[in-house]
Computed example of a mutant assay.
Amino acid sequence: MSQPARQTVSSSAPSPIGGERRRGRGAVSNATGRFEPLVRTEEDDGWDALADLPPFKTEVAHEAARTAITRNQSPDIAFDRSINPYRGCEHGCVYCFARPTHAYLGLSPGLDFETKLTAKPNVAELLRRELSAPSYKPRTIALGTNTDPYQPIEKDYRLTRKILEVLEETRHPVGIVTKSALVLRDLDILSRMAAQGLAKVAISVTTLDPVLARQMEPRATTPAKRLETIAKLKEAGVPVAVLTAPVIPSLNDHEIDRLLESAAAAGAIEAGYVLLRLPDEIKHLVQEWLLEHHPGKMRRILSLIRETRGGKLYDAGWGKRQTGEGVVAWTIGRRFEMASRRLGLDRRHLKLRTDLFTPPERKGRAEASEQLSLF
C-alpha cells in the first residue's frame, strides 16, 4: 500500500518534479522561497509514492489590497506607475522576471508562481479612490508590467476589465502589455479610449516557433494567435506595438528579423526588446529548463549570457539590465535597430494624452454636493 511522500529538511538543490505532475507548466522544480527558514524537498520513501501525487492545479487566493497603483523611480523604465491585479501568472513563462516576488508570500518562484495565484478583488475600487485624491497628477498607467493582466483567470475575475472601466470613465491614459488574445474581449473599451488618444497595447511575441513557445510559455496564446491579435487591435484603431522579450542568445535571437516583419505586416507600428534577465532564482529555473529542453545548447547559451553581463549571469545595474553590454549584446541591439528602422517600427507613435483626465467624485464630496442640491 502506498504511503504519502515525506517532506524533509534539506540543503541540496531542488529535485525536478515529474513530468506528468507538471504537465502544461513552465518551471521544472519548486524550490523553497529564499526567505524561508527551512528548505524542503520531496523524497520518495521507497514506496513509489511520488508517482501517486496529483498534478499541480491552479489555486487562487484573494487579497484585500491596500493600494492599486504601484510607483517606481527606475530611470530605465518608461513608466512611473502600474497596476497589477494578480500575483503570480498561470502562463508559466520560465524566464519571467517577476517569479522572485513569490518569495515575499512564502512561496516558491518555481511551480508555485504559476499555480498558486492571488487576485485583488478590490483593485478597481481602490483605483477610483486613488484617482480622486486632490494631489493626483495623471500619467500613463501601465498594466502587465509584473504579471499578465489577461492571464487565464481574468476570464472569471474580470479585474482588468473593471480597471479599464474606471480608466475610461475618468479618461485616464493606459498602456497594456500582454501575451494573451483575451485582450480582444475588451476591444469595446480600448477602441473608444484609443479614439481619444488614451490607450495603447503592446503584444509580447518571443518566438514564431510554436514548439519553442509551448516550452517557454506553456499556457500563453500561440504565436500565430498573437499576430492575429495585433491585426485585430490595429483594425479597431488601437495603436499596437510588438515587444520581443526576452531575446535569448543562440535560442531565439535568429528570429528577430522574421518576427518583426511578421508583426509589422500584422499592423504593429512600434517595437521594443529586452535581453534575457536572470536574477538569482530565475537563473536556476532557466538552467533546469535548458537542461531538460535544450541540453545541447545549454553551455553555449549560458556562456553568451555571461558575455552580455560582464562575466556574470545577471547585472541589475540601471541602463544595463534591459539590454546588457559587450559585443554579443551590441550585435543583438544593432540587429534589432536595423530591422526596426527598415520596417518603420523605430519611430515613437504612441504618446498618450493626459489633458482629458476627469477625477472621479470623492464619496464625501459627492454626498455634500447632493445635500446642497436640495436648497
Score class of each variant (00 low, 15 high):
K162L: 09
V286E: 12
I282R: 14
N146W: 14
T70H: 14
E63N: 10
L111H: 08
G46Q: 11
P279G: 03
G344T: 04
G344I: 00
K225V: 02
E42D: 11
L38T: 01
T8E: 15
D45V: 03
G324L: 04
I83D: 04
E217S: 00
R214D: 00
K312S: 10
I305Y: 06
E325A: 10
V328C: 10
G237I: 05
S2E: 11
V166L: 08
R161Y: 06
A31V: 05
M338T: 11
S303K: 15
I17K: 14
L372C: 05
E59H: 15
Q151F: 03
G326N: 03
Q371C: 04
R6V: 07
V39K: 15
K320Y: 14
R66N: 10
L233N: 05
P14M: 12
P85F: 11
V94T: 03
R347K: 15
G317E: 13
A119P: 06
D315S: 03
S373V: 00
G88K: 12
R81P: 01
H349W: 15
V247D: 03
P37E: 06
A133G: 01
V240W: 11
W330C: 02
R347F: 11
G310V: 04
E261A: 07
M338R: 15
G110V: 00
I83C: 08
H172D: 00
R362Q: 11
Y95D: 01
V166F: 09
P4R: 14
D186A: 01
A119F: 09
L184S: 02
M216A: 02
G333Y: 07
R335P: 06
A271C: 07
E261K: 13
T32V: 01
T67G: 11
E292F: 08
R25T: 04
P249K: 11
P4N: 12
I163M: 10
E361M: 05
G272I: 00
D52W: 12
R81V: 05
R81A: 12
V247W: 09
R25F: 02
V286C: 12
P149K: 13
L291D: 14
V28E: 05
A65K: 14
L53W: 08
Y273R: 09
P109E: 02
A5E: 09
L187G: 07
Q7M: 12
K297F: 00
L167H: 03
V242G: 04
Y157V: 08
R348P: 00
K351V: 11
G272C: 08
E370C: 01
P246M: 02
A195N: 09
R341I: 02
G24V: 01
S29D: 09
R321C: 00
G267T: 03
D44G: 01
H284S: 14
E370Q: 10
L374I: 08
L53F: 02
V177G: 02
K234S: 10
G197M: 06
G333K: 12
N72E: 09
K363G: 05
P138L: 10
D280L: 07
W318N: 12
I269N: 15
G197H: 09
L131P: 06
I305E: 06
